[in-house]
């Protein structure tokens, strides 16, 4: 393994009096990274410093082994950035706009056009290549932005809220595309998203930021490790309350979730085995519709980290 993809060393950014980043140290050695944090945590400032658009007050941001501050222009050739807001070149067809962006990254004219076509086919906009982006729907625009981030064949991909505002189908499709790029083609991914389900699906590592500080960096599987042998159980309609009572009577601690049919069942001093639950249901003439280990969701883990201090 050569140099890490991103290495932040005491990165400190001040805008006037306001300190956006308080000396962040972190290393991302490759793969897929989820960038989490509430609004205003300093994620976008970090992104800007990584792209070499902001001059850090102190510390360094190294990307792909290059100092972002010194050679930001060269670096932006190797990074694909997908902004959160709509961003496209007006007055051009989709494919011409992409080719233009590729040319700016140093592609020869013909290669840029070829590449633009290929990338649009890849994201599933092949049929709409010659339309203007202003006529696109939300889902198409998001995929177009992904294509724009990919068109100059970057080594690292920064995606800012790629599934924001998408309906479930478009979202699944977008996630599928990102998964293919990262898993099959070895692009490194940095994903900033508020939808933790997406992060959980795509990423192995997370950085949790808050108030300009790095609160946690680690692997998702560590964060969401199953909580002390508890089980998440769902009961068929109308039997929730009865199950709750029965489980408590049998000595389990039982906490209700959401719609009233799901429970997390655990026991203070031992692992809860599925057969116990099944027996409990059988004895009380209930129907269990699902049972699985109660892994903590990334959301729970994330909120816990934020509340930690």
């Amino acid at each position: 393994m050569s140099a890490p993809i991103i290495a932040l060393d005491g990165l400190l950014v001040r805008y006037g009096k306001f300190t956006a980043l308080h000396g962040v140290d972190a290393i991302f050695s490759g793969g897929s990274l989820g960038l989490l944090g509430p609004n205003g945590a300093g994620k976008s400032t970090m992104l800007r410093s990584i792209l070499g658009l902001v001059r850090p007050t102190a510390g360094t941001a190294q990307v792909l082994g290059v100092d972002a501050r010194k050679s930001g222009t060269e670096l932006r050739r190797r990074i694909g950035y997908m902004p959160e807001r709509d961003a496209y070149i007006g007055g051009f067809s989709a494919v011409r706009g992409l080719a233009h962006l590729a040319e700016i990254c140093g592609f020869p004219k013909d290669d840029a056009m070829l590449r633009a076509h290929d990338v649009l086919h890849f994201v599933g906009l092949g049929e709409e290549r010659y339309r203007e982006v202003s006529t696109f729907s939300t889902g198409m625009r998001q995929r177009y932005k992904l294509a724009a981030a990919l068109v100059h064949d970057p080594e690292v991909l920064f995606l800012d809220e790629p599934t924001n505002g998408l309906d479930p189908q478009s979202r699944a499709r977008m996630l599928g595309l990102i998964e293919r790029i990262t898993k099959d083609h070895g692009l490194h991914l940095v994903l900033a998203s508020h939808l933790l389900h997406d992060v959980e699906r795509l990423c192995q590592e997370v950085w949790v930021m808050e108030g300009g500080k790095m609160r946690l960096s680690g692997s998702i599987s560590d964060l969401t490790a199953a909580a002390r042998g508890a089980r998440r159980v769902t009961i068929a309609n109308d039997q929730g309350a009865a199950f709750h009572a029965a489980a408590e009577a049998a000595g389990f601690a039982c906490s209700r979730e959401g719609d009233g049919r799901s429970f997390v069942v655990h026991h203070e001093d031992r692992v809860v085995e599925p057969d116990e639950i099944f027996r409990l249901a059988q004895n009380n003439q209930m129907v269990i519709t699902s049972i699985r280990p109660a892994a903590r969701s990334l959301e729970d883990a994330f909120l816990e980290v934020l509340e930690g201090e």
């Binding site: 990074i79 902004p83 807001r85 961003a87 496209y88 007006g90 990254c105 724009a148 100059h152």
Partner: peptide, 16 residues
């Protein structure tokens, strides 16, 4: 036009 379609964001994330 670039400001209306937010194209500056697409440009400045690139080597320009």
């Amino acid at each position: 036009k670039d400001l209306e379609t937010n194209a500056t964001e697409a440009y400045f994330a690139r080597p320009i």
